[in-house]
Amino acid sequence: MYRGGKEGSVFRWDVVGQNLFAQIFLTAAWTTLWIAVISQTCGVIIGLFIALMRMSRFPFFSWPARFYIWIFRGSPLLVQILILYFGVPEVFPGLVPFITVYSTALIAFSFNEGAYMSEIIRAGITSVDAGQMEAAKSLGMRYSLAMRRIILPQAARVIVPPLGNEFNNMLKTTSLASVIGLFELTYTAQVNGSQGFVYFELLIVATFYYLIMTTLWGYIQNWIERRMDPDRSNQIKRQGSRSFLMRMVGTGTSGTGVR
């Protein structure tokens, strides 16, 4: 599959071509993808909890949340990965069977992302007009019900664009798992590249896959944002034919302007 090159040879496109659709890279791309998706999803869930805790009037909730955000946003993700993979087994030998490259990557990415998502989500929630919660409360809704049915659906409109950007980042951030030997795209390129002295060429292959994924995601992100935007000029709305997404989030502007 790969052959060694002579010293100082020019870039070999044929190597790139040979490996572009090789099984190892297809597998690696899939690994990159599912790790990104799961980590981002967990990050959103963690972020929602942390955001709500952060906004709580009880220090019992808000202080741990602030601490969490401070730690995970204040230190490098790379260091967090290394601490989890190499440090934790030293201090807690009992946890060793749970510390695999996959669990480490997923946990580190999720927790790190959770800190960033919590700030995004908190910004989304506070962007919803305060009158909405007051209206909900005045109708007899409790905080949790009001959050679920009134506030969060409106916050989602503000949260989705930055969330899309976060996932774009996550696809690329998975490359950090290479330092603990997880066979995602970057590590696959590194290991196989150094074996056959085609380091550069295989990194090009990895780049190709990253570009495919981030570009595709860009289109999807665009599509989602357009569907959520009420001011599309080519809107065709028929009675009862609203998509799930539109029904969830609505097509109105937030706030209540006087007409």
Binding site: G131, L139, M141, R142, Y143, T253, T256
Partner: peptide, 25 residues
């Protein structure tokens, strides 16, 4: 308790200066 207050509020109608309708509904 929140539940008690919520229940009492459900029997009191409040109309706001800025309407505060739910825009996504």
């Amino acid at each position: 308790r929140e539940a008690t207050i919520a229940r009492m509020r459900s029997q009191i109608g409040f109309v706001f200066q800025r309407f505060n309708l739910f825009p996504h509904k």
